[in-house]
Computed example of a mutant assay.
Amino acid sequence: MSLDPAIPERIGDTGVLRWPGTWRVYVATRSEEIKADTERALTLREEAGQLLSVGEGIGTHLARAESYARGRHGIRRWLTGHAIEGAWSNVNSATVMLYGVLPTAELCGRGPEVSAIGRAYLPGDDPRLVHLQARLSAGDLQERDRPLMQSVLRAAYTAQAMETGRVRNFRNLLLGWVIMLALIVLGVMIVGAVWPNAIPMCGNQSVIRTQGLMPAQICPTGGLAPSSGDVPLVALIGMLGAALATAASISTRSELSTRYSLAVVQNLLKAPAGVATAVLGLLILNSGFVPGFSGLGSQPAILVWAMAFGYGQQIVTRFVDQRADSLLVAASPLTPATNTRTR
């Protein structure tokens, strides 16, 4: 029996590589494996005629997965995950159905794979998983265990979809915050450039001013009065500090394997956050709000403090990083599931 879908291109052809996205390659590869296993299983099973409808169902799911993998999808489907979730949902459904046609002799060999998938997404005390592991320990998986294996797979794939959905929603939330914060800091920079006195970045030199040795204030651009370049320069130095913090975090971060990546959006958030902390930090220092701090006495001191505050955005964004890490751990197949699901 052939499971080739009634469409002009096979999923292994360059059609799936026409648009970017490594998930398309993974879907293509997994679909070809399922198709080959199904055709082989139907050839070996004596009751292949009775399983014809199952084989047709598998072929339908693979054709749908291929359609998602070969298509070009806009920003709306990227945000909602319509394409990638549609493709993997059909691949997973085909996988579950595959276990209904595999020869009985292969069930013991496939059992550990099903158990591993279950442990990745189901709690350790899940009754289906516990029962399957008991059957595996006995080394006696039989025909009557097919529904159990399919049940574990179905539950694991459902839990996986929920966890990856949380990662996707968090990514979209972060992206929204990046855009909003970027617009806010852009507005601050425009206001500072048009009305320099509205957002004063200049140090007051209150200590040495009393001795009459230097002017009353010094500004980030080196002038003695606020100028249109003060706030943009502080913003640039703040972004430099944020970039250094990002480089430091990248060197210690290990990206887990999931359908969605949060690293890019996490790093994008640090740039406008660095601008915000640099501008706000200098305003606080120059306001006299900090006890014992008498002012910024030189242009280098102002710029160094701006960089330090830009780097210090890590204090705020680390909470975002911690939340992202917890979601990625829950969604990754490489980490075991816990009894308490991530919310």
Results as ranks from 00 to 15, higher is better:
residue 1 M to V: 13
residue 4 D to S: 10
residue 5 P to M: 04
residue 7 I to A: 14
residue 10 R to Q: 10
residue 11 I to W: 01
residue 14 T to S: 14
residue 17 L to A: 13
residue 17 L to Y: 12
residue 24 R to M: 05
residue 25 V to Q: 09
residue 26 Y to I: 01
residue 28 A to I: 00
residue 28 A to Q: 00
residue 34 I to C: 02
residue 35 K to T: 07
residue 36 A to D: 13
residue 38 T to N: 06
residue 43 T to K: 11
residue 45 R to P: 07
residue 47 E to Y: 03
residue 48 A to K: 09
residue 50 Q to F: 11
residue 51 L to S: 04
residue 53 S to V: 13
residue 54 V to E: 08
residue 55 G to V: 02
residue 56 E to H: 12
residue 57 G to Q: 12
residue 58 I to V: 13
residue 58 I to D: 00
residue 58 I to M: 02
residue 61 H to A: 14
residue 62 L to V: 11
residue 64 R to V: 15
residue 66 E to M: 09
residue 68 Y to R: 07
residue 69 A to E: 02
residue 71 G to I: 00
residue 74 G to A: 10
residue 79 L to Q: 06
residue 80 T to E: 10
residue 82 H to N: 08
residue 93 S to G: 12
residue 96 V to G: 04
residue 97 M to G: 03
residue 97 M to P: 00
residue 104 T to H: 01
residue 105 A to Q: 14
residue 107 L to N: 07
residue 109 G to R: 13
residue 111 G to R: 06
residue 111 G to P: 05
residue 113 E to S: 12
residue 115 S to V: 15
residue 118 G to T: 09
residue 121 Y to G: 03
residue 122 L to A: 10
residue 123 P to S: 11
residue 126 D to K: 05
residue 128 R to M: 06
residue 130 V to A: 05
residue 130 V to C: 04
residue 136 L to Q: 14
residue 139 G to H: 03
residue 142 Q to H: 13
residue 145 D to Y: 02
residue 146 R to V: 15
residue 149 M to L: 14
residue 150 Q to I: 06
residue 160 Q to R: 15
residue 160 Q to D: 09
residue 162 M to C: 10
residue 163 E to F: 05
residue 165 G to S: 09
residue 167 V to S: 01
residue 167 V to D: 02
residue 170 F to T: 02
residue 173 L to D: 07
residue 177 W to Y: 14
residue 178 V to S: 01
residue 178 V to D: 02
residue 183 L to N: 05
residue 185 V to P: 00
residue 185 V to G: 03
residue 190 I to H: 09
residue 191 V to E: 11
residue 202 C to Q: 09
residue 203 G to T: 07
residue 203 G to K: 00
residue 205 Q to K: 07
residue 207 V to A: 09
residue 207 V to D: 07
residue 208 I to H: 07
residue 210 T to M: 10
residue 219 C to G: 02
residue 222 G to E: 06
residue 226 P to Y: 04
residue 227 S to L: 02
residue 230 D to Q: 09
residue 232 P to E: 03
residue 238 G to S: 08
residue 240 L to A: 15
residue 243 A to S: 11
residue 245 A to Q: 08
residue 245 A to R: 05
residue 251 S to V: 10
residue 252 T to R: 15
residue 256 L to G: 04
residue 263 A to F: 08
residue 271 A to P: 00
residue 272 P to C: 08
residue 272 P to R: 02
residue 278 A to G: 08
residue 279 V to F: 04
residue 280 L to W: 07
residue 281 G to T: 02
residue 281 G to S: 01
residue 285 L to T: 06
residue 297 G to A: 12
residue 297 G to N: 08
residue 299 Q to A: 11
residue 301 A to L: 11
residue 305 W to T: 05
residue 307 M to L: 14
residue 308 A to L: 15
residue 310 G to E: 02
residue 310 G to D: 04
residue 312 G to R: 00
residue 317 T to S: 13
residue 318 R to P: 01
residue 318 R to K: 13
residue 319 F to C: 03
residue 320 V to G: 05
residue 321 D to I: 01
residue 321 D to Y: 03
residue 322 Q to P: 01
residue 323 R to H: 13
residue 331 A to G: 04
residue 332 S to A: 12
residue 334 L to Q: 12
residue 336 P to I: 08
residue 337 A to M: 09
residue 338 T to E: 10
residue 341 R to P: 00
residue 341 R to Q: 11
residue 342 T to P: 02
residue 343 R to H: 11
